[in-house]
């Protein structure tokens, strides 16, 4: 299986497969999030189900592995591609009209997404699964809110600053996905002239569905906070 690291197509296959797996995760994550709008209790039940149980931990580790591989390969590919461009750069460059803006800025978009992932982990994971893990390790921690996902969501998005930051994050994610989804299929060879426009359309639909589901929660709790006067607590 050395071709996955020492051939250009192999390296792209790794990017495509890890990326596609992460898209499936996002679909799952977004679907789960929407529940909080309809029933905070049901959402907390999901939080409990995905607490520090063995299957949730295996899932978390698998996910972390996918993310790390995707990022490491992104940097390797970017460095190689920068070198392949040569030392002298063009004085004049113009983007072609069929070339999507996102496709030329995947690394930058990816870096924005990763930075926000750290913030996101601090906002939620650190207060929930991580606290449970600390408890399992024998630390004296407060377990009263480890499954209160709905409460944390309500408190965080009552802060307009966080709501806006999360929406910026989702916008970067949308652009990343509109190129990423069809590009992954193209890299895996599952494309032709007929499917090209179809995949591009599917990419936009998938990206929009994922981002709308996430954004719905943010916007809902932003307005709930503004109208209901819930305390902003991050």
């Amino acid at each position: 299986m050395t071709w996955l690291s020492n051939s250009s197509v192999g390296r792209k296959v790794v990017m495509g497969v890890t990326g596609a797996a992460l898209v499936l995760f996002l679909l799952f994550h977004a679907t789960m999030n929407v529940v909080v709008i309809f029933s905070p209790e049901a959402y907390n039940a999901i939080c409990e189900f995905l607490g520090a149980n063995w299957y949730a931990l295996v899932g978390t580790l698998g996910l972390a592995f996918l993310v790390v591989v995707h990022i490491v390969y992104a940097f390797i590919l970017s460095v190689q591609n920068y070198r392949a461009r040569g030392k002298e750069r063009y004085a004049v460059t113009e983007r072609q009209k069929d070339v999507e803006w996102a496709s030329k800025n995947m690394l930058v978009l990816g870096i924005i997404i990763v930075c926000f992932i750290f913030l996101h982990l601090y906002n939620f994971w650190f207060k929930m699964q991580f606290v449970e893990l600390q408890h399992m390790a024998g630390a004296d921690v407060d377990l009263s809110r480890v499954t209160d996902g709905a409460g944390y969501v309500r408190e965080l998005f009552a802060c307009p600053v966080y709501a806006v930051l999360y929406l910026v994050w989702l916008a970067a994610l949308w652009f990343h996905l509109t190129h990423g989804v069809w590009s992954a299929m193209h890299t895996l060879g599952w494309n032709n002239s007929i499917w090209m426009p179809r995949w591009k359309c599917i990419s936009k639909i998938v990206a929009t569905i994922i981002v709308l589901m996430f954004a719905a929660v943010v916007v809902y709790y932003l307005f709930a906070g503004l109208c209901g006067g819930a305390a902003c607590a991050a």
Binding site: S8, N81, A84, Q96, D98, V99, S103, H179, T187
Partner: peptide
């Protein structure tokens, strides 16, 4: 192609456009 120092394709489509 890889050995000669060409880069890795990221499906931007600039090639086909030009």
């Amino acid at each position: 192609m890889d050995e000669l120092g060409f880069g890795n394709c990221t499906n931007t489509g600039a090639c086909a456009a030009e």
